[in-house]
Design a protein around this nucleic acid. Structure first.
Lengths: 202, 202
DNA sequence: GTCTATACGCAGATAGAC
DNA sequence: GTCTATCTGCGTATAGAC
């Protein structure tokens, strides 16, 4: 029944991703995934042996999806202020396409730290180069002297947090008005760039 | 066997809180909680009828714990810069005592938005007063003109995110060195105050 | 109030027919 | 490769003895 190789694998993987990301690992049953994929439960085991293995592949896929575009920005020759701006745009675009991803990843890593170790081992992220550049610009007087890691965490925080906390913010700060949050998020890109540059420039 | 009224309830509630916060709602079994409390499984049902009801009480308790101290800061007559500084200290102290709380709350609200609605209805948070004060100081030229909600989200993001993302950051940015992260977090308070004030002052 | 015993369903996983 | 049937264990919850 399968024309292309791995067609069914991808079909399952996509379905599993949607459910896992929405309901979490322990909150998802194999039946949920089978229903989402429109197939039979044993087929999941046939193709992925176990829920554990299926989840691992989903996690890895979701996790890695967030990196290539960002790496491209970080490895470019642009000054920090430009990288920052591009990072905000790139990351925001990804998050708009998969807004549930941050909370999914943060939660899985928190409740099962082992899941991450394997994933990052396979790709070798190295933020050191970026730290060096930041320190360089601090030396040159372009940026205010500070701990580059604090800058990095701030950047991630301000971009990612609103997505992870959206349901909270929507109810507490926006009275449940979802459309208003959308507007807020649209304007946020411009705000962030200004806000951030003001803090780090010398 | 119970001397004080509600002694057993509290014992269970505390145990349940520890397990729920660590493993999440769906990742926690009643047996886990009974073991943690050192009691028998049916006793949980006797005191709380169902896992659902037990969880609801835990969630509400955890959620509300984060508010009174913060509310005190927000309702004071201090200028924004002072409130900000106190907020960072207060929130950080709470988070240091229960560092897993952010990811617990964010995840539960994301996977089951209904849980939040009930909790906030009972306490009536109102950030509008704070927004007005921020706008006031903007009018007076103390703060740079901006959207107060963006400021608010930035503040929450920079304080809360490092706790929610700690396992991630620890592995990716600190090479798994936990002690170094502790040091980083200690220094972060001072950094945050400077960083933030630079961004918002006129 | 606290226990043992138990009911019942659904979870993940596999056997085996087609 | 895909299905039905089935195994086994664990999940929540309750009945009933003490």
């Amino acid at each position: 029944m399968e024309a292309l190789t791995g067609e069914m694998e991808n079909k399952i993987l996509d379905a599993a991703t949607r459910v896992f990301v929405r309901k979490g690992k322990t909150g998802t049953s194999m039946q949920d995934i089978a229903d989402e994929a429109g197939i039979n439960r044993p087929l999941l085991n046939y193709y992925f042996r176990s829920k554990e293995r299926l989840f691992d592949q989903v996690f890895y896929k979701v996790f890695i999806r967030f990196l290539p575009d960002v790496a491209k920005v970080f490895n470019s020759n642009l000054p920090i202020s430009e990288k920052l701006s591009k990072f905000i745009d790139t990351y925001t675009e990804m998050l708009n396409q998969s807004p549930l991803t941050p909370i999914f990843i943060l939660n899985e890593v928190a409740t099962n730290p082992g899941s991450l170790v394997e994933a990052i081992r396979k790709m070798g992220i190295d933020p050191v180069i970026l730290f060096k550049q930041i320190e360089d610009e601090m030396q040159k007087g372009i940026l205010k002297k500070d701990d580059p890691r604090q800058i990095m965490v701030n950047m991630l925080a301000m971009v990612i947090f609103p997505y992870a906390a959206r349901p909270m913010l929507e109810h507490i700060m926006f009275g449940g008005n979802s459309a208003e949050v959308d507007l807020f998020m649209e304007k946020r890109n411009v705000h962030l760039k200004e806000f951030f540059i003001r803090s780090i420039k010398a």
